[in-house]
Design a protein around this nucleic acid. Sequence first.
DNA 1: TTTTTTAATTGTGAAAAAAACACTTAAATA
DNA 2: TATTTAAGTGTTTTTTTCACAATTAAAAAA
Lengths: 235, 235
Amino acid sequence: MQKYSKQTRVLLAVDCIIFGFDGESLKILLIKRGFQPEKGNWSLMGGFVRPSESIDQAANRILKQLTGLDGVYLEQLHTFGDTSRDPIERTASVAYFALIDINKYETQLSNDYHAEWFPLKRIPKLVFDHQEMVEAAKRRIRYKAALHPILFELLPTKFTIPQLQTLYESVFNTTIDKRNFSKRVLATGLLIKLTEKDKAGSKRGAYYYQLNMQNYYAKFQAFLNFIPNPDTLHL
Amino acid sequence: MQKYSKQTRVLLAVDCIIFGFDGESLKILLIKRGFQPEKGNWSLMGGFVRPSESIDQAANRILKQLTGLDGVYLEQLHTFGDTSRDPIERTASVAYFALIDINKYETQLSNDYHAEWFPLKRIPKLVFDHQEMVEAAKRRIRYKAALHPILFELLPTKFTIPQLQTLYESVFNTTIDKRNFSKRVLATGLLIKLTEKDKAGSKRGAYYYQLNMQNYYAKFQAFLNFIPNPDTLHL
DNA sequence: TTTTTTAATTGTGAAAAAAACACTTAAATA
DNA sequence: TATTTAAGTGTTTTTTTCACAATTAAAAAA
C-alpha cells in the first residue's frame, strides 16, 4: 500500500501570535506580508510546514525566523481550516501563540520583515482570517493567565512586583490592591527576592525578584488566582 | 497567481474522541479500523477533510456518521502533525472531542463500525497516535469540567442530583459530600426542579431536574467550582 | 397494617480565604 | 534639611468553603 488514493491534499501552514509587554500594554508583533496575495498588508508571521518537520517544529522555526528566539513559551492555539480562508488555494493553518520578553528579540530580523508591535486595542486590519486568530489568542492568554502563571514569560529574568502588577492590570484591564496583590504573589512561593533594586521607577527603588524555577514548574498546573473576582471578567 | 508553487501538500484528517457516561464511569466510543493500514485494530472514529467542507464541518460529519447525532457538544482539541504519525503518507489530524448522551446515539450505525464503549481506565491499544489524542482529551475534559458546566452534556435532558454527583465523582475520581454538592449545584441557578421523580435508583425516588438553558448559556464561561480542592487534583 | 429497609433530602457552625482599607519608609531631589 | 514619590507592609471584615448527621419518603418485607 503506497498512498491514500482519491483523497485531496491541502497546504498546511503555521501562524504565530507573538505577545510582548513593554511596561505599558500587552502587544503583538505583526509583519508586512512579503508576497502575494495581500502583499504589503499587515499579517501574522507564518509559513508552510515542511515535509521534514512536525507542526510544532514549524512553529518554532517560524518564531525564530522573526525574532531569533529559541526555547520561549509557544503553545498551539487552534487550527483554522475554512475552505476559502486563503483565496489562492485551500490551506489549513495551525495558529500558535508565543510569549516573549519584548527586550530580547533580534530587531534586525524583525526589521527585515517590517515588523511592528501593536497594542491589543489598536490592531490594524489583517490578512485572511488573522483577525480571528488574534481574537482567539487574546481570549486564550487571558483565560490561561487567570489560572496559570504564564505572564512571567513576558517579563525579563529580573522584575519588580510593581512591574508584575502593572502587567496583570494591563492584561485584565482592571486595578488590583497592591497589598493584596503582593501578598498573593509572594504566597505562591514562586518568587525569589534579590538584594538589588530597580531604581528606574521611583526614588526609593523596588526590589528585583526572579522566578523560583523549581516551584514554577511544579506549580504551573495548579490553579492560581492573582486576579480578584475572575468570574466577573469576561475572558 | 494560481497556486503556491513548490509547497508540499498533506492529507488533512479529523479524529473524534467521543465521551459518554453510563451511570458508572466515563467512557469513549472506539471503532475497529476498517481499512489498511492497521485494519481491524481499535481506533478513534475519523476521516479525511473533504475539499468542500471546513474542518469543523468534517468533524460534525464524522461524528454523525458514527452516532447519527447532530448538534451535540463538539470542540476542537488539538492538531497532531508529526511527520510519520501515519506510516503511509504524511497526514495531519485535527482531534475533536464530543460529549454525547450515551442513550441517544444510533446503535445501528455504530454497530456497522463495530464500535464499543471503553471506560477510560481500560482503553485498548490504539492505532497511530490515537492513544496520545485520548490522553489529551482526558486532560481537557477534566480541565474544562473543573471550570465550566460541560458535564451536563453527557446526561439526558432530565436527570437527578445524585446522578449528577455520581458523574462528577466519576470524572474526577473523588468523593464529594452530598450536602455540599447539592448546595453548590443549586446555588448556580442552572437547574430547574421538576415535579416528577426518578424511582429507578431508590424507593423514595429522586427529583428530576433539567437545565435552565438561559442561565446555562449565560454562565457557561463563568468559572464554576463543583469540585472541592481542584488544586489537588492533577488535571 | 406495621415494620423494615434504602437512598434522598436538608442546615449549621467552624475554619479558611478573600477583600477592603491607610500609614510608614527609603531615597532622590530641591 | 525639607520635600517629593512610589514602595512596602498589617489588620479587620466579609465571604466562601468545609466538615459533619438526623429526618423523610416510599417501596418491600413481615
